[in-house]
Simulated assay, not measured.
Amino acid sequence: MSKLDESEIIKIFQKKLGNKNFVSEDVEIFKLNKSNIIAKTDTLVESTDIPPKMKLSDAARKSVVACVSDFAAKGIKPEYGIISVNFPSSISRSKIEDAAAGFRKACKEFGISILGGDTNAGREVVFNVCLFGSSKRIVPRGGSKNNDLIFATGPFGYTAAGLGILLDKKKGSRDFVKKSIQSVLNPKPRVNFGLKNKKYFTATMDSSDGLSTTLNEMAKQSKKKFVITSSPHKKDLETHAKSQKLNLDGLVFHGGEEYEFVFTVNPKHKQAILKNAKLLKTPIIEIGHVTTGKGVVLQRNNKEIVLKDSGWKHFR
């Protein structure tokens, strides 16, 4: 029997729960009385999500960031949250206080009030966060139109390089190593930029599973072709990739963990987007355009190279 991947497991649950027409989104939206409630849940597991040198305070903050980033991509402010924690029975009081401090830091940073949660005991640390907000609408993953410009907040590649340094003991220049590790330990979702520019977006999606996954999912749902003409990375990443004999495209497009987001806009809004990015000190990069067709291609030297979805997938 073949091993099930994440998408197949999700399909089983959708079928059993009767969600035949389910469309994957960054957040869920439902109506309670006359209000539209926005919800997002995410789980952080010690063995797969907490690399060496990451304190529990950083891990706790990052578990909140994972949800906040999805809200940011949709231009919605998270307001309330529920947190569930699982700790080994042998864990020390100081580590529990460290985790609690990380949650407190994240909630203060993003203006979130915690309503409650659940505490359990198990073999490893597990954090589950569910955040709530409200909005009249969300920007879909699948709203891109022909001739739209493709932008990404960024840059990309540092987290993949940082994980390589932490997990595989890759080397690099002192400044680059520090910057890359910091990108893993302290990601910064672009909430204010999402809130300010939501009205201009035709489609958006969080990039934390990898840029190639994000682009392919947006192109698929939009039923369009995404042409990528520029890679959203900086020169020091190129230097690092070359010195360590790493694949640059792999770092930029398939690494994941950035907690940035991709968005498409009508060209007439380009100047407004750039102006707001400057005001908010948010780095954004124009990486391509939308056209008729399907899939995602990298345009290089007058040739088109298919960019497959090779981002993070559980059970892959």
Rank of each mutant, 00 (worst) to 15 (best):
L56V: 00
P78H: 03
I165T: 01
D70Y: 00
L215E: 03
K220S: 11
V64D: 00
R300S: 13
P155D: 03
E258S: 14
Q271I: 11
G250H: 01
L307K: 07
K136W: 04
I83R: 02
P187V: 07
R137G: 05
F226M: 13
I112Y: 04
D209R: 12
A73E: 04
D42Y: 14
S24Q: 12
R141W: 08
K245G: 09
V191H: 00
F193H: 04
M54R: 01
I284Q: 07
L17W: 10
K77H: 07
P88G: 11
K11P: 00
K281T: 05
W312M: 04
V23D: 06
S134N: 14
D209V: 03
F127L: 03
K198Y: 10
L166S: 02
C107K: 09
K16W: 04
I37F: 09
S134I: 04
K108A: 11
N120A: 14
K55G: 05
V23M: 06
E304Y: 09
L44Q: 06
K178F: 08
K170G: 01
E8K: 15
H240S: 05
A272N: 14
A39F: 04
A152N: 12
P155I: 05
E238G: 13
P78V: 02
S24W: 08
I9R: 10
E124P: 09
Y158Q: 10
E109W: 04
F87Y: 15
F193V: 02
N301R: 14
G154D: 10
K105N: 12
K245D: 15
S2L: 13
P51V: 01
G288M: 08
G154K: 07
R61I: 01
H254N: 15
L163T: 01
Y200Q: 07
G18I: 07
R174V: 11
L279H: 13
D148Q: 08
F201D: 01
N36G: 09
K11N: 12
D26T: 06
D58S: 11
A39Q: 11
T213D: 06
S207G: 08
L246D: 06
G194R: 03
K145F: 11
L149Q: 05
Y259I: 06
A72W: 01
S243A: 15
K308D: 11
Y158V: 00
F22Q: 07
P232C: 11
L32D: 12
N19Q: 12
G255I: 00
